[in-house]
């Protein structure tokens, strides 16, 4: 058996911290950030019955962050009577989006084709956004499971991108940039985004310039959104472990620096 190295101990410590706090089954209350409040207020401001485009622009790798975010958002949207039309600009978002919309719609007794629809995927994202701007039907002649576009009553009400009340991108990469720079700029549609935490700082300039209407990021954002809509979920369940893991990383940074400065001062004296 191979001897354990320092990294193995760091790994083990993280596993113990996360699993240990999760076994406590605690869901502490948390502050809601201005970002989440802004997004919630924006979704709330859309009139009931509005048709919104929900784009699942992510891979399966980001599911632990994306699923709680998307679930909380879809619960809010269906609860408010919005009518989401789902698409995916990344292949793996297709199966995720289809299943999530189906599950959350069932919670609210929504009917496929009337209250929501899922159109599927197109491989080239910029082309997809530009063609959606001209014709939704020609971009997606059939929905994900093969129904012709005109056979779904909901879809007969939308012809092009600007007919949607908003575009909500649920993303783990730079797809939001394309929605802003091609979708919003050219077809004047409002764009908002639910993103993985790692992408938050990348999109701050777009929020600051007003090009991105609102943005919520990461599991923490999901937990805050769950608090605002009053329905618990994976976000809030994971918050204690999230905080503990942050503190663990901070402790590792501290230990690393103490070792570094101690060694340096010893070398200096030597």
């Amino acid at each position: 058996m191979k001897k354990l190295e320092s990294r193995h101990w760091a790994f083990l410590g993280l596993a113990i911290v996360v699993i240990g706090t999760m076994l406590l089954n605690l869901e502490p209350d948390l502050d809601v950030s201005p970002d989440t409040i802004r997004m919630h207020a924006f979704i709330d401001s859309l009139p009931a019955g509005s048709i919104i485009l929900v784009s699942f622009d992510h891979e399966a790798s980001a599911l632990p962050e994306i699923k709680p975010l998307a679930t909380a958002f879809l619960r809010h949207a269906f609860g408010k009577g919005l009518r989401p039309v789902g698409i995916a600009l990344m292949a793996e978002g297709t199966a995720v989006g289809y299943r999530l919309m189906e599950q959350v719609a069932a919670e609210y007794h929504k009917q496929y084709g009337i209250d929501y629809a899922f159109l599927g995927y197109q491989p080239q994202y910029i082309a997809a956004i530009l063609s959606l701007g001209e014709s939704v039907k020609q971009t997606f002649p059939r929905d994900y499971v093969g129904h012709p576009y005109d056979s779904l009553p909901l879809l007969r009400e939308v012809h092009k991108l600007s007919d949607f009340g908003a575009v909500i991108s649920i993303a783990d990469g730079n797809m939001v940039t394309h929605w802003v720079e091609y979708g919003r700029a050219r077809f004047n549609v409002t764009v908002a985004a639910f993103v993985t935490a790692v992408m938050v700082t990348s999109y701050d300039p777009y929020v600051s310039s007003g090009q991105l209407r609102a943005m919520v990021g990461g599991l923490r954002g999901a937990a805050e959104y769950e608090k605002l809509i009053g329905i618990g979920g994976a976000g809030r369940r994971g918050m204690l472990a999230q905080a503990a893991s942050h503190l663990y990383v901070l402790a590792l940074i501290l230990v690393g620096n103490v070792i570094y400065f101690t060694t340096r001062s010893r070398k200096g004296r030597g």
């Binding site: 320092s6 790994f11 993280l14 790798s61 990383v249 590792l252």
Partner: peptide
């Protein structure tokens, strides 16, 4: 796929130390 990404949590922790 999400577990492959979850491995990064451990490498981030290790990088923080070293």
């Amino acid at each position: 796929q999400s577990t492959v990404f979850a491995l990064l949590a451990f490498f981030v922790a290790s990088a923080s130390l070293r």
